[in-house]
Amino acid sequence: MPSHRSDDEDKPCRACSDFKTWAKGQNKVTFTSPNKPQHPRPKDCPLDKDEIGRSTWGFLHSMASYFPDKPTKKQSEDMARFFNIFAQFYPCEPCAIDFQEDLKRHPPKTSSGTALARWLCERHNTVNKKLGKPVFDCSKVHERWRDGWKDGSCD
């Protein structure tokens, strides 16, 4: 995958790091302690890696949960194509490369909405494990991303 940057190879990529790490590379002091920002970050700043990740996973999980349970052949093909194209253009280059490799090992399962939602949950758990984060119970993807929790807390 070609680099998205040309002459700025030494310049940190905001979409490839969290805000604190990126800001340190810019020689800016942003936090005097973990809970007290010295200069609060304005809401209209470009998204950092963590913000892009959270937003992207939310979008992708919602999309997968709403994918038809009996998709047409074209819908199945289009969704598989979407994930492959998405992986090429994800703004965090190391993340994109990782996802492309994961797609080679585990191509999108687009035979049904349930299959797609579970496949995506497994892909997300692969990333969670790499980052040392807890894994999600993939049997609950529709509860989390479409129907709401069984306890009614989302009603």
Rank of each mutant, 00 (worst) to 15 (best):
D44H: 13
P91W: 06
G132V: 14
R144S: 11
S76H: 00
Y90P: 00
D151Y: 05
F89V: 15
N128T: 06
K73A: 13
I97W: 01
T56H: 05
S111H: 04
E77W: 03
P71N: 06
L131N: 13
A117Y: 05
S139W: 03
D48K: 09
L131Q: 13
V135K: 12
H39F: 11
K74L: 14
G113H: 01
Q100K: 06
F82Q: 07
W57V: 14
P68M: 08
W149T: 07
H142D: 13
F83L: 14
V141E: 11
F89T: 15
D155V: 10
A64N: 04
S153F: 05
S139F: 02
E51L: 03
F89K: 12
E51H: 06
V135T: 15
M79P: 04
D151H: 10
G132E: 13
D98V: 13
W119N: 01
C138K: 06
H61Q: 15
D50M: 12
S153I: 02
I85W: 04
C92H: 05
R146C: 12
P94W: 10
S76C: 02
K130Y: 08
I52M: 12
K104T: 15
P71V: 10
L103G: 01
Y66G: 15
F59V: 13
F99H: 08
G132Y: 07
L60A: 06
